[in-house]
């Protein structure tokens, strides 16, 4: 596997888009959390009463969840990146050449997913550093590992978004289509479907189990989530559901790659 990862690394090492996306993504994580932090400070300053509702989202232990929630809006970045990494292979027909040169079809798929997991580990670690930073600069906040499990949820959510994007890339093969579907589904249609299932058809919590939604419910908004995600299932159920989805994407890609013409 190390040798396969080395080859995957050779593919992205000199790929400008990979670095541009990664750097923008990192700055965006910092930026979106700073924005949240700043607005929260301002609100509390101007309306001290608001703290009753808001709590102190950037203090320990809440900060682990707050950073995770804020950063989750940016998961479309790595999603698009991995759509491009996969559709590049289809466009250049290098997915064929890799097999011709001696990879198995299974190796081609597996190393891409392992690479996505490694990328998610790095992204999660960066989120950890950002949470640590904001937790420490918030006045009256004392370091605490309480709520640290949220870092684990950040990891699962990152993997879930990226692998969902990869699933779309394998399904549609064209970067334009995959990216458009990814955005429209994630930002509009999934919410719509959740609302229809949960409220129109009154099937709560079934609507929470949609592929991206399930990870959003797992790492919810740090205040008022009891209202927004009413009757949400236990978090362990959400974690397991997310993992089932991730495995599903992998096995779908694996099946498509091992059974069909390339």
């Amino acid at each position: 596997m190390l040798q396969l990862l080395k080859i995957e690394w050779l593919k992205v090492k000199n790929y400008k888009a990979f670095w541009i996306f990664s750097i923008l993504y990192s700055f965006a994580i910092l930026g979106i959390n700073y924005t949240g932090y700043y607005i929260n400070e301002l609100t509390v300053q101007n309306m001290p009463a608001s703290q009753v509702i808001l709590g102190s989202p950037y203090s320990f232990p809440k900060v682990w969840q707050t950073v995770g929630f804020m950063s989750s809006w940016l998961l479309y970045f790595p999603g698009i990146l991995f759509i491009m990494l996969l559709t590049n292979e289809f466009n250049f027909k290098t997915h064929r050449q890799n097999i011709i040169d001696g990879w198995t079809r299974q190796q081609f798929v597996t190393v891409k997913f392992v690479f996505a997991i490694l990328f998610s580990i790095v992204a999660t670690f960066f989120n950890f550093l950002v949470a640590l930073l904001f937790g420490l600069i918030t006045t009256g906040s004392h370091f605490s590992f309480l709520g640290f499990e949220n870092i684990g949820y950040i990891f699962i959510q990152t993997v879930a978004y990226i692998t969902f994007a990869m699933f779309l890339a394998v399904l549609f093969r064209k970067s334009g289509t995959a990216i458009a579907v990814f955005f429209l589904y994630g930002l509009i249609f999934e919410w719509l479907i959740t609302v229809i299932i949960n409220f129109k058809l009154e099937l709560t919590p079934v609507g929470y189990f949609l592929p991206l939604q399930v990870t959003d419910v797992m790492l919810p908004i740090p205040f008022g989530n009891k209202v927004i995600y009413k009757d949400a299932p236990d978090v362990w159920i959400l974690v397991i559901s997310s993992l089932v989805y991730i495995c599903g994407y992998y096995f779908f890609a694996l099946k498509k790659f091992t059974k069909e013409d390339l």
Binding site: K6, L10, K11, N14, Q97, G102
Partner: peptide
């Protein structure tokens, strides 16, 4: 096979490095 299949954004020599790695 059919057409030369390489990573467009990489140089010739970098492309060969990938092929060489896959062929071990």
């Amino acid at each position: 096979l059919e057409t030369p299949n390489f990573y467009h954004y990489l140089s010739g020599v970098k492309n060969l490095e990938i092929a060489a790695e896959i062929k071990q």
